[in-house]
């Protein structure tokens, strides 16, 4: 393709290179379903003119998002599993982008690096006792610790039960593994796998629908899919409308001129 022009070494010359192969070879990002501007940007950097198709396909400009790097996860492999997990829970489909294109994995990474992941506003002092179901969460583990343990266990189960890394599994197998977690059947230390899954699901939905200031809901695409207009100051004039009111979404940035 363009290697002669760019002078870069490598084996990307062949026509019809798949996105998947590309992602694997670059070693920069993975998950198979990377969408949006990041892919465009990397393609632009690495493959020169190879960018057009991908950029058009996803309808975004080729932005290099410097704010998207890992704050919480140290191992890239763990983050790749997280990416695929979020995309499995919130896949790209006819309605619009999936979790990865919405920025959900980086949203979760940041949340885990902050107050939420460290449980700084929760009561985390001992003594710790298991308690009954009615007494709620009693583990000494922080959300960050639960995510790290859970994400690694997802990949371990994938490798042992399916002989493949989680990121390479077909969707039905990925869903089967996550279902085991959601039903509390995976053995985690100090916490139930259903608790981990409910945190995971919560974080994915938050990343898809939060204000874009947190790095999720990229370009407000999550809101657009639901017809949600974001943080509108007043609905006084339309509150009694019989039909659904289409509005362009408004984010907090729009209130902070």
């Amino acid at each position: 393709m363009t290697d002669k022009k760019t002078g870069k070494p490598g084996n990307h010359q062949q026509e019809g290179i798949t996105r998947r192969t590309f992602i694997k070879n670059t070693g920069l990002i993975t998950g198979g379903l990377v969408g949006g501007g990041l892919l465009g940007g990397l393609l632009g950097n690495q493959l020169g003119t190879g960018t057009e198709t991908s950029t058009e396909e996803h309808g975004h400009g080729a932005t290099h998002r410097y704010e998207e790097a890992r704050m919480f996860f140290k191992r890239q492999g763990d983050f790749r599993v997280l990416e695929m997990v979020t995309e499995t829970i919130f896949p790209e489909d006819g309605n619009g982008p999936g979790a990865i294109a919405l920025g959900v994995p980086y949203f979760i990474d940041r949340q885990l690096a902050g107050n939420w992941g460290s449980n700084t506003r929760d009561y985390m002092q001992g003594p710790f006792e298991e308690g009954t179901d009615t007494q709620g969460y009693q583990s000494s583990l922080t959300r960050g610790e639960i995510f790290l343990q859970g994400i690694r266990l997802i990949n371990q189960i994938s490798t042992s039960d399916y002989d493949e890394a989680f990121v390479d599994l077909e969707e039905q197998d990925r869903v089967a593994i996550l279902t085991e977690f959601s039903e509390g059947n995976a053995e985690m230390r100090g916490v139930s796998s259903s608790r981990f899954f409910s945190l995971l699901r919560q974080a994915v939905l938050e990343g898809a629908y939060c204000d874009p200031l947190y790095g999720g809901n990229r370009e407000m695409a999550g809101w657009r899919m639901k017809g949600h207009p974001g943080s509108v100051m007043s609905y006084l004039d339309v509150i009694q409308e019989e039909d659904f009111v289409e509005m362009d979404p408004v984010a907090l940035k729009d209130h902070n001129h």
Partner: peptide, 10 residues
Amino acid sequence: MTALPMREYG
């Protein structure tokens, strides 16, 4: 029962 702390909000 042993009273336990509410560790997070519900």
